[in-house]
Computed example of a mutant assay.
Amino acid sequence: MSDYVLVINAGSSSLKYSLVDAASGAAPAVGLVEQIGEAEGHHSHRGPDGELSTKLKVENHEDALRAALEAFSSHGPSLDDVELAAIGHRVVHGGARFGDPALIDDELVAAVTELVPLAPLHNPANLEGIEVARRLFPDLRQVAVFDTAFHQTLAPEAYTYALPLELRDDHGIRRYGFHGTSYAFVAAEAARLLDRDLADLNLIVLHLGNGCSAAAIRGGESVDTSMGMTPLEGLVMGTRSGDLDPAIHAHLARELGKSVAEIDQLLNHGSGLKGLAGGNDFRELSERREAGDARAQLAFDVYCHRIKKYVGAYYAVLGTVDAIVFTAGVGQHSAAARAASLANLERLGIELDESRNTASGADARRVSADDSPVAVLVVPTNEEWQIARETVALIR
Results as ranks from 00 to 15, higher is better:
141 R>V: 06
150 F>D: 12
94 G>Y: 07
100 D>C: 01
64 A>F: 11
79 L>N: 08
359 A>C: 04
224 D>T: 10
233 E>K: 09
131 E>F: 06
391 T>M: 03
273 L>F: 00
254 R>C: 03
7 V>L: 10
200 D>H: 11
214 A>D: 07
337 A>C: 12
98 F>D: 02
246 P>F: 09
282 F>E: 01
333 H>S: 11
247 A>V: 09
37 G>W: 11
38 E>C: 01
375 A>R: 15
192 R>Y: 05
42 H>L: 14
293 D>G: 10
40 E>I: 12
36 I>Y: 09
182 S>D: 02
351 E>T: 15
363 D>W: 02
190 A>H: 05
191 A>R: 10
39 A>N: 04
225 T>W: 03
82 V>M: 10
188 A>D: 13
173 I>Q: 02
102 A>L: 09
364 A>K: 11
206 L>K: 04
92 V>L: 15
115 L>F: 04
255 E>G: 01
171 H>P: 00
192 R>P: 03
300 F>M: 13
18 S>N: 14
326 F>Q: 06
186 V>K: 06
353 D>Q: 06
172 G>R: 02
371 D>K: 06
220 G>I: 07
348 L>H: 11
32 L>K: 08
38 E>N: 01
24 S>T: 15
263 I>S: 04
269 H>S: 12
138 P>L: 12
210 N>S: 15
221 E>Q: 15
124 P>Q: 04
62 E>F: 02
115 L>T: 13
4 Y>P: 00
347 R>G: 04
213 S>Q: 08
288 R>P: 03
78 S>I: 05
39 A>T: 13
91 V>K: 04
215 A>Q: 10
155 A>D: 10
371 D>V: 13
262 E>L: 01
373 P>I: 11
286 S>I: 05
203 L>C: 07
300 F>G: 01
71 A>D: 14
219 G>K: 07
313 A>K: 11
56 L>F: 03
301 D>Y: 03
10 A>H: 03
207 H>C: 09
101 P>R: 07
74 S>H: 10
116 V>I: 15
51 E>H: 05
236 V>H: 05
2 S>Q: 06
97 R>D: 13
261 A>M: 02
368 S>K: 07
275 G>W: 00
370 D>K: 08
7 V>A: 12
131 E>D: 12
396 R>C: 02
199 A>S: 14
